[in-house]
Amino acid sequence: MRERLSAGVSRATARAAARQVASRVLTYPDDRLLDELGLLRSAVEAPGMLPDGTREPLAQVLEHIRATPLGEQQRQYVATFDLRKRCCLYLTWWAHGDTRNRGYALVGFKQAYRNAGMEPPRNELPDHLAVVLEFAAAGDPEAGEALLCEHRPGLELLRQALHKAASPYAGAVDAVCATLPHASADVAAAAQRIAAAGPPAELVGLEGAGPQPIQLQPYDPHRRGSEPFGTNLDGAVSR
């Protein structure tokens, strides 16, 4: 049975709330995330406040956060997203690997943020899924959704990899995909190609000719200088 949104809650607002919650739980866990847990759970548990297909998976992730000691959460996060390439949270990696084309794609993300009147995060790559979700939730919803849809094959592969690893974070990516249009046959075909061949590798003989391989790091929105857009969690998930 499809759940109806509460009166006065638009579909755009519901999508924004789900994406904001997903953004928070896909950040590196810290004390501030634990402090925000009550607000996040209230947004998820409020009847009719989230789109179909997002409430249960997000609730499962939040329950994991509630029940797991912070140190163990941090260990799991690093083991999942830092040590497993197939669980990469950086969207351009799936399409471009660590090639010069990835550098050009990152410029496109930065330009999308600046077109919306926002500066890209200073201490994080602009294609980190948590950053893109915050942009889609509280920045420019149309531009943010376009970035997510453009990189849908990578999102689908990330979702599959997290489920295969039995990761508690799988529900967050399930919810993200549930806020997007239905994946087309082209998306499925592109995902299959990446799964079979892996992301592209840099061409040989071009050392030093383009952007150097990028060192990945967990996205922490509370690290000094890395708050992407100065958004307010209360305003994003409680309106």
Rank of each mutant, 00 (worst) to 15 (best):
A59C: 12
D52W: 14
R32H: 07
S42R: 10
L37Y: 03
H64D: 11
R75T: 10
L37P: 00
R66Y: 13
V44G: 00
L37F: 10
E56C: 09
M49K: 14
P69L: 03
D35T: 02
Q73K: 15
R66P: 07
L62E: 08
G71S: 04
T54R: 02
L58N: 00
L34G: 09
A43F: 08
S42C: 08
M49S: 03
Q74F: 13
K85R: 03
R32L: 10
D52M: 13
Q74L: 13
L34M: 00
L83D: 02
R75Q: 07
E45G: 08
L37A: 02
H64N: 10
D82S: 14
E72Y: 15
L58D: 04
R86Q: 03
R41V: 07
R55F: 13
Y77H: 05
Q73P: 14
R86I: 09
L34Q: 03
A46M: 12
L58M: 01
P47K: 07
P57F: 09
H64T: 07
P51H: 01
A59T: 04
L70W: 06
L37T: 00
Q60A: 15
L62R: 02
G48I: 14
G71E: 15
T68C: 04
L40E: 06
Q74R: 13
E45D: 10
A43C: 12
D82F: 12
A79M: 09
M49T: 08
F81H: 06
I65K: 06
R41N: 13
E63C: 10
P57R: 11
R84G: 10
P69V: 11
G71R: 04
R75I: 15
A67K: 10
L70D: 05
E72V: 06
Q76I: 14
R32A: 05
H64C: 13
L70C: 00
G71D: 07
A46I: 14
H64V: 11
L40M: 03
R84D: 05
G71I: 15
L39E: 00
A79Q: 15
L33N: 07
R84A: 03
A67S: 04
E45M: 03
L37C: 10
K85C: 06
V44K: 06
R84S: 05
E36V: 07
D52P: 12
L83R: 11
R41W: 14
R55P: 05
E36W: 11
T54N: 01
A46S: 15
R55M: 12
F81D: 02
L50Y: 02
E36T: 04
S42P: 11
A67W: 08
R75N: 08
L83W: 07
G53P: 11
L39D: 09
E45I: 01
D35L: 09
G38T: 05
K85E: 05
Q74V: 14
Q74E: 13
A43Q: 00
L58E: 00
R55I: 08
G71N: 07
R84L: 11
E72A: 09
Q73R: 15
L70Y: 01
G38W: 15
H64P: 09
P69K: 09
V61L: 05
G48C: 04
L83H: 02
A43M: 03
L70N: 01
S42F: 15
L34Y: 14
A59R: 08
L40N: 00
V61I: 07
R32W: 13
L39R: 04
L62T: 02
Q73W: 14
R86D: 12
M49I: 04
M49E: 04
